[in-house]
């Protein structure tokens, strides 16, 4: 490149920054428009576009689109944005097949890890009975807990069984999330480890009822996260269950 040094100086230090600034501003404008029509999400789903037929003005979270919005935008597909997280406490004996001997103590925690996917599939069956039309296991693992119990953690993705509902016609909508404790009474539920599955099933059913109630009043509702955890009751051999459900829905924006 031959030329006046002064021209080169202006080109590099003045011209280039101006061009870069203009490009960035244009890019920003395009992105803002795109949020309303076809929103790009961040995080693990960063590169996956979320298409929504609704124009919504408050769905951007700290780093990405809110999970609940992504979940309601595509209610008929399995998604990592719609999940059930369960942390349960199990006794080793409850995982044995009929007539199966206990594993060597050094292999006990590995045994529970090996049986964790089986438990997660059973949990999917509970979800299908209560709130899901489809369910897949995303992850199932285990570790030692207390008093001879083992903690099994599982993450399940699901499609909700009940329909999303109706969204009132409007130019723009506002997005809402609700978090409710499970059970809704706020009290923990006690159960023996072997029967805790039935109690969890009841909590899932409660989550589905809460969503139905919301659908009745707001027209629509999506369950996008259910979390249930158990901890050992130090005074007995029972476990205590508690959790929460996160629901999302759309409303016609006020003032439009």
């Amino acid at each position: 490149m031959r030329g006046n040094p002064l021209k080169i100086f202006f080109a590099v230090f003045i011209g280039l920054p101006i061009v870069a600034t203009v490009i960035l501003q244009l890019f920003g404008t395009v992105m803002m428009v795109s949020v309303a029509h076809q929103v790009q999400s961040g995080g693990s789903d960063a590169d996956r576009p979320v298409k929504s037929k609704y124009k919504v003005d408050n769905v951007q979270g700290d780093r990405s689109l809110r999970a609940g919005f992504k979940a309601l935008s595509n209610v008929s597909a399995l998604s990592e944005d719609r999940q059930v997280s369960v942390s349960t406490q199990v006794a080793l004996k409850d995982l044995l097949d009929p007539g199966e001997a206990k594993p060597d103590p050094d292999f006990a925690h590995v045994f529970v890890k090996a049986r964790a996917p089986r438990l997660a599939k059973e949990e999917c069956a509970r979800l299908r009975k209560t709130l899901a039309s489809e369910c897949v296991v995303e992850r199932a693992t285990a570790g030692k807990a207390y008093d001879g119990l083992y903690r099994v953690s599982m993450t399940l993705n699901f499609i909700q069984r009940d329909s999303f509902g109706e969204v009132e016609q409007a130019d723009t909508h506002s997005y809402h999330e609700i978090r409710e404790r499970l059970p809704i009474s706020g009290r923990t539920i006690k159960a023996m480890p072997a029967s805790a599955g039935k109690k969890r099933e009841a909590l899932y059913a409660e989550a589905a009822r809460l969503c139905s109630k919301l659908r009745a009043s707001e027209g629509n509702c999506a369950i996008y996260h259910v979390q249930v955890s158990e901890r050992a009751d130090r005074k007995s051999s029972a476990v205590e269950l508690s959790g929460h459900v996160r629901l999302s829905f759309l409303q016609k924006s006020a003032g439009f």
Binding site: E100, V110, A114, R115, P117, A120, K121, A140
Partner: peptide
């Protein structure tokens, strides 16, 4: 041998496919 014993003789139980 240990793995097969721990999964009850069926490796497919480790699969997360429902």
């Amino acid at each position: 041998g240990h793995v097969m014993k721990l999964v009850g003789g069926d490796l497919s139980t480790l699969s997360t496919d429902s």
